[in-house]
Design a protein around this nucleic acid. Structure first.
Lengths: 200, 200
DNA sequence: GAATCGAGATGACAAATGTCATATTGCGGA
DNA sequence: TCCGCAATATGACATTTGTCATCTCGATTC
């Protein structure tokens, strides 16, 4: 019997997934969490074979949970299950050594198949992801990403400079660089592009 | 037997929903669409009792479909089924005379109950929505919304002015007004706030 | 018919944003 | 050791953004 924990904040999908996986002969859903923190606690307590993690959840994201599990001693295999085919997310998932990264654009039946393969030690990544991740490499440095993130919150350069202990001019320079890299004509467009690709 | 069409772009949820509703004694899922246009065609062809429409789909949104159905002669009851408790969406749904507006934060079992009630002529709206819609009223005029939407795409005022046959100064004036209404200190923040509330 | 209102325009101004050239420092590799 | 690169800074500059007072031109209302 494969013991599974599901972490997904949207109740309808979480419940449906639970019911349908439970219908499979060889799978047992031992826990359902609605946010990252609950998932983390549940995995440590129940020691399942596999956990399914959504990325965008309140509190800890699925990627946060994956990173933490990697640091710890858990033997639980991690499957990221998300809507977003964003190369940025995928990269970060790879860094956290996940066993699978699957899109919600699959059927539950296919998901069950993937779970079985992963338990046997295989890796499963959605093809679409792999293709994208070659093309759309994040061109931004850490600093640039940080500045773009603050900008996206609505901070002015002066405020960002103050927060990061930089001069306002430097922040402007970074933004100038960002705009060129992303081929955007202004902040707003840069933010849109970067969000779209999952770079911030 | 209650005949239902489901329109939802995310395959996993669509499939799961289909399977689980099909398990109910009195419900029959007669069609599943993955975008708004397909849903529209399917509803006209199959004449179901109820359709479940996601809002954010490629092509026509669920709200678009609801509006079109209202104009036409279909007797099909519309249920909007979405993640977003945004007052803006809710208002627009009411204008399209939908029979239900439910969040994906419910279980499938509860959804089935709501479908039954709606078929009998009742209306079903998620309480959360109703509360929010009193508080967070959209303060923006149509013109202002339009301008903010263009801004959110990354257009400069000059470009927006050109598109809408206005002067650049007028566009700036509108934005100035928008910033005050939303209590934002700049464009970026205004866009963030408005998106958050579902106003654009 | 006068008062009022809303959409749109204008101009002037201040502040923020974006571009560019150039300088310093420190670090990692050949 | 020397080279090059990345991070940071500065100053000068042009452009865009945001604020405000004021104007015109229909509609609407009284």
């Amino acid at each position: 019997m494969i013991r599974v924990v599901i972490a997904e904040d949207q109740r309808m999908l979480r419940g449906a997934l639970g019911t349908l996986l439970e219908l499979e002969e060889d799978i047992e859903v031992v826990g359902q969490a609605e946010d990252g923190d609950e998932a983390m606690a549940m995995i440590e307590r129940l020691d399942p074979d596999v956990c399914l993690l959504d990325i965008e959840m309140p509190g800890m994201t699925g990627l946060d949970v994956a990173r933490k599990l990697k640091e710890g001693t858990s033997r639980c295999k991690v499957i990221i299950l998300t809507t977003f085919a964003r190369p940025g997310y995928f990269e970060r998932a790879l860094e956290a050594d996940v066993a699978g990264y699957l899109l919600k654009d699959r059927s539950v039946e296919e998901l069950a198949q993937s779970i079985r393969k992963i338990v046997k030690g295989k890796k499963e990544f959605d093809h679409e992801l792999i293709l994208k991740s070659f093309k759309d490499d994040n061109p931004l440095t850490d600093r640039e990403r940080e500045i773009l993130r603050y900008s996206a919150q609505g901070y002015t350069y002066k405020e960002i400079a103050h927060t990061l202990f930089l001069s306002a001019g430097t922040v402007r320079n970074y933004m100038s660089e960002i705009l060129q890299k992303l081929q955007a004509k202004n902040k707003v467009e840069a933010i849109r592009i970067a969000k779209d690709k999952g770079w911030i």
